[in-house]
Design a protein around this nucleic acid. Structure first.
Lengths: 206, 206
DNA sequence: AACGGGCTACCTACTGGTAGGTAGGGCAGA
DNA sequence: TCTGCCCTACCTACCAGTAGGTAGCCCGTT
C-alpha cells in the first residue's frame, strides 16, 4: 500500500536500510557496525533510520530473519527432492553452494552468530536448524545401512560438510590472499563446488 | 629479575592480562571487548592495564602474535616430519586437532580475523601462512603424481580441510546445540578427529 | 644502619569522542 | 487537515586514553 509509490522508484527506504544493514553487519559485525554507518549508506540520518526500526537490535533481528527464511526455504526445497542415493547428496551440496554464492553476506553473518553463540539474535537458531540436521543425519544413515554409502558417523559427516562449504564463503577475503586470486568469482565458486562434490563422492561412494 | 618475587606466586600481571585478553577477544571479538572487561577479569583498573600495554590495539597484536607463534611452530614441526604418503597427511591432521583442542580460543580469534580480513592485526597474516599452504599443496600434488592419492585440486583440497577442521572448534557452541552435547569434551574431539581422518583417507586413498 | 632517589604497579579523576536512543519541528503528499 | 518521513538538537552511557598522585621495593650512599 504505502510502498506502491516508492516501488515505482525502485525500493522503499525500509528495504534500502535492510540491504545496507545486511552488508554492514556481515562486513564488520554487530558491535563493529554503528547505526550512523547504516544510515549514511542509505543517505539519511540515524534518527530517520530509527523511525523505521525501533532499535539496533530489532533491525539486526529483522536482517537475520531474512537470512533464515531464505536459507530454510532453499535447503528444504533441495532436501525434499525425490532423488536418492548420491544424486540427492550432490543436489543438496550444489543447492547449498548456489544459495551461499547468491548471498555471501548471509554466510558471514551466520558465521559471526555461530562464533558469538547467538547472543544478538532472539531466535532459537539451533531449534530451527535441528530438524534439517536430524533429517540429513537420518538420510545418510539409511543410505549407509542400505550399503549405498561407505560407513561414517552421520553427525560428524554433516558437520564436516557444513564447515567445508561455509568456510569457503565466510573466509573468502582470507582465501583470496592464500590463492592470490578472487575466491568468489563465479568460475572459482563453480570450481570449488565441483571439487567438494568430487571429494565427498570419493569419500562416500565405494 | 623483578619478576622473581611475582613468579613465586604463579604468573606476572602482564601474563594474566594476556590470558584474560585472549579469552575476551575470542569470546566477544575486538569491538565487543572493552579494556574495562579485561582489567576487571584480572582484578585491576583499566589505567593499570594500560601501564603494561600502550593501547588496546597493541594488546590485541600481542595476543595475536602468541597465537601465530604457537600455530606456526606446531604446524611446522608436524609438516617437517619425515613420514610420507597417507601417514604424513594423517599426522598433520592429528597435529592440527591437538593444537586446536589445546587452544580453542585461538581458533575463534583466527576465525574472527578471517571474517574481518585482518583489519585489527598489523601482521601480514597470509604472508606468514602462504609458505605453509604452498608446501602443503606441493606435497599433495607430488603424492597424487606418484599415484599415492586420488587426483584432486590440491589448493581446493587444503581449503576444504582447513574449513572442516577449524569449524568444529570455532563453531563449537553452535555444534553443541545441534548435537545436544558438548562438542569440545576430549572424547568428542577425539571422535571427530578420527572421523575426519577416516573421511579424508577414504577420499584420498584409493 | 639509616637515608633518599628512582623505580614499578596501581589508584582516582578526568578528557574528548562516539555510541544508541528521544523530543519536537518542518514539510510534502493524500 | 492529517499522516508519514526526515530533520536538528539533545540526552545518557560508555569508550579509549591521560593526568597526577600514592604505596612499596630496590639499591647506592653516607
Amino acid at each position: 500500500m504505502s510502498d506502491v509509490t516508492e516501488e515505482i522508484s525502485s525500493k522503499s527506504t525500509r528495504e534500502l536500510i535492510l540491504d545496507e544493514a545486511l552488508h554492514c553487519f556481515a562486513d564488520r559485525g554487530y558491535e563493529g557496525t554503528s547505526l550512523n554507518d547504516i544510515a549514511a549508506g542509505v543517505g539519511i540520518r540515524r534518527p530517520s533510520l530509527l523511525h523505521h526500526f525501533p532499535s539496533k537490535e530489532a533491525l539486526y533481528t529483522d536482517v537475520f530473519e531474512m537470512l533464515l527464511s531464505e536459507w530454510l526455504e532453499g535447503l528444504e526445497v533441495a532436501m525434499a527432492s525425490p532423488a536418492s542415493g548420491w544424486d540427492k547428496a550432490e543436489l543438496v551440496i550444489r543447492a547449498g553452494f548456489d544459495l551461499f554464492a547468491r548471498t555471501p553476506d548471509y554466510v558471514r553473518i551466520m558465521r559471526r552468530e555461530a562464533l558469538d553463540s547467538g547472543v544478538h539474535v532472539g531466535v532459537d537458531l539451533s531449534g530451527l536448524l535441528r530438524p534439517l540436521f536430524d533429517s540429513a543425519c537420518a538420510y545418510f544413515t539409511s543410505e549407509m545401512d542400505a550399503g549405498h554409502f561407505r560407513r561414517h558417523n552421520s553427525q560428524h559427516l554433516i558437520i564436516t560438510g557444513y564447515g567445508a562449504i561455509l568456510t569457503y564463503f565466510s573466509d573468502a577475503p582470507f582465501i583470496d590472499e592464500l590463492l592470490n586470486d578472487q575466491a568468489l568469482t563465479p568460475q572459482n565458486v563453480r570450481d570449488h563446488c565441483d571439487h567438494v562434490v568430487a571429494f565427498f563422492r570419493a569419500a562416500l561412494v565405494a
